[in-house]
Amino acid sequence: MSTTPPRMNAAEAAYRTIRAKIVSGELAEGERLTEKRLSKDLGLSRTPIREAVGRLILEGFVERQSGYTTRVARFPEDEIAQVFEIRGVLEAYSARRAARHARPDDIAEMREVYAVMAANSPPRSEAAYQVLTEANERFHKIILRAAQSPKLTALMTMALDVGMVVRTYRIFTEADLTRSLHHHGELIDAIAARAPDWAESVMRAHLLAGAARVAEHTGDIGQKTPPPDVKAAE
């Protein structure tokens, strides 16, 4: 029998359900969220709903406005571009450090998550898409953890908006997702080979490809300045 309090199980269920509705677009950007409505829709009490919404606010999926009003977060185009530029610097450095500091169990976990991604890419159903996006998020978190840098982790936490990243992932085409999967596999190879330059370059290419898709999607097809080289920061 599980020793986890039922309320915590309900909060996790509420979090996953609301997050999935936001990612799929069922809950649109700017849409108002109320505990009463969510409680009724999900068949849960307000306490786990409140916990789930609080977690989604921290991750950037939901924003709290004046008073107690909460809405699905809006992602302005210029902010999306900034997020990819920031990721280009921080995650390239993260991959570089991971190639030097990753433990065998980190690499083994990357391979496990990659297998899940490969089995669901390209996604043929909403459920497969949800599995793929969660696996992608987990994969990048493993690399960050493997970098073994509390300062880098703090910077990533402050600078990146998980909700924005997950939502933009949805605009990728089948070709984009195939390329992304290849990048993830090559990142594992580079990190396992203890090749910092290789790992950094693959992560940089991975994020530049994502940025290009976002730019095309938003109509911003101007030339973007590539992220600066981070070797000197190591």
Rank of each mutant, 00 (worst) to 15 (best):
T153Q: 15
T173R: 14
R179A: 14
T173K: 13
V202Q: 02
R71H: 04
G222Y: 01
D41N: 11
T34Y: 14
K224R: 10
A119I: 10
S94G: 08
A193P: 00
R37H: 08
E85F: 00
A28N: 15
A195T: 09
V23D: 05
A127V: 02
R87H: 02
E126K: 13
H183G: 07
R194G: 09
Y93I: 00
R87A: 06
G43T: 11
A95F: 05
V165T: 14
D176K: 14
Q65R: 13
R64L: 06
Y68Q: 11
E200G: 02
D189V: 08
G54P: 00
V166P: 03
G88C: 04
V202P: 01
I57W: 02
D197K: 09
N136L: 09
R74M: 06
A108G: 08
N120K: 03
A232V: 11
R145N: 12
A199P: 02
T157K: 10
I221P: 00
I22W: 04
Y93M: 00
V162R: 13
G210E: 04
Y68T: 07
A215P: 01
M203C: 13
P226R: 07
A193L: 06
E137A: 15
I188E: 01
A193Q: 06
V165S: 11
E134F: 05
E59L: 11
F172T: 07
R37C: 07
I142F: 11
A28L: 15
A119G: 08
Y93E: 00
T153K: 15
L208T: 04
M110A: 09
F139D: 09
E200F: 03
V131F: 01
A14S: 01
P150V: 01
L181D: 09
I142A: 12
I18K: 00
I143K: 08
T173N: 12
R7Q: 14
T157V: 03
R37N: 06
D41M: 09
K21R: 15
K231A: 08
R100P: 00
R87K: 13
E234W: 12
P48D: 07
Q148W: 11
T4C: 01
E35H: 13
A232R: 13
Y68K: 09
R7V: 15
S45F: 08
R64N: 03
H183S: 14
S39L: 14
R16A: 12
R204W: 02
T218G: 02
G25A: 12
D41Y: 06
P6C: 03
R103L: 12
S2C: 11
V23W: 03
R97W: 08
G222S: 04
V166R: 11
R124T: 03
V230C: 05
M203E: 13
M156C: 12
P123W: 03
G67D: 00
K151V: 11
R74E: 12
A14G: 01
E63R: 09
V113C: 05
R19A: 04
T178N: 13
A146P: 07
Y169N: 15
I188T: 05
H182D: 15
P226F: 07
V53H: 00
T17F: 03
D189N: 11
A98N: 13
T34H: 13
E77T: 08
R138V: 09
Y129M: 03
R145W: 10
G88R: 02
